[in-house]
């Protein structure tokens, strides 16, 4: 589904990704954890072309990003930490925009699909609201539905709950969990360790621009093999 080989990325002097390689199979849910500045978000953003990689090879469903980036990126949807909803459009307008404008879907079809998606994320009653009228948790659920409206094969989540009030985190995680159960391929950058442990098939632990551990959640959370992971987990779990 996704194949990354020796990805390097630097911002000026700073090397953010230092040779990242991994593969993701259809239907897998991957959590990417690790300390701040370890390159988690940059890795996710590189997959969908928000950052241009300096070297390495990236294939999305067998399509080389280098050769036909746009086609490869079409397979993916992304959810941001800051929601990035379109404030001048209603909830329904946010969902319908890309299917109608980019894919050229008929409005009636896009609307029906959007309403189904809103029902799925539990926000049918908010379809005519503007983003400013929603809570953070509701905004993020709309953002998830908006990404799904383009029917991606792969969903990328970049710290989807990091800017939410604690009591709103649950509703967003529930939606993502439902998606995991539908076997949508996903990569989630998160600091929610309990969630990562429950939902993921595999966990990538990143540090200094490298994936230093790529294994099943039990192995990371129950028996972390490296001291680096252990100290990170102790630190982050003591915060919660």
């Amino acid at each position: 589904m996704i194949k990354a080989k020796d990805i390097y990325k630097n911002f000026g002097e700073l090397e953010v990704l230092s040779g990242v390689s991994f593969e993701v199979q259809q239907g897998e849910a991957i959590s990417i954890i690790g300390p701040s500045g370890s390159g988690k978000s940059t890795l996710l953003r590189s997959l969908i072309g928000l950052e241009e990689i300096n070297s390495g090879e990236l294939y999305i469903e067998g399509i080389s990003v280098k050769e036909s980036g746009k086609k490869a990126y079409e397979k993916m949807g992304m959810v941001f930490q800051g929601f990035n909803l379109f404030p001048h459009k209603t909830v329904l307008g946010n969902l319908m925009e890309a299917p109608v404008i980019v894919k050229g879907e008929k409005k009636a079809k896009a609307e029906a699909k959007s309403e189904t998606l809103l029902k799925k994320v539990g926000l049918s009653d908010k379809k005519d609201s503007y983003p400013a009228q929603l809570s953070g948790g509701q905004k993020q659920r709309v953002a998830i539905a908006r990404a799904l409206a383009m029917e991606p094969d792969i969903m990328l989540f970049d710290e989807p709950t990091s800017s939410l009030d604690p009591e709103l985190v649950g509703e967003v995680l529930t939606v993502i969990r439902d998606l995991a159960e539908e076997n949508i391929t996903m990569l989630i950058v998160t600091h929610e360790m309990g969630f990562a442990r429950d939902v993921s098939d595999r966990v990538f632990f990143m540090d200094h621009g490298k994936i230093i551990s790529d294994t099943v959640p039990e192995k990371i959370f129950v028996n972390p093999e490296s001291e680096r992971i252990q100290s990170f987990l102790t630190k982050i779990l003591s915060q919660n």
Binding site: I48, G49, L50, K70, Y73, E74, M76, G77, M78, F80, N84, L85, F86, E97, A98, I101, V102, K103, R146, A147, M150
Partner: peptide
């Protein structure tokens, strides 16, 4: 811009 880009605009 990023949201628009990842939606394919």
């Amino acid at each position: 811009y990023e949201a628009a880009k990842v939606l394919g605009m």
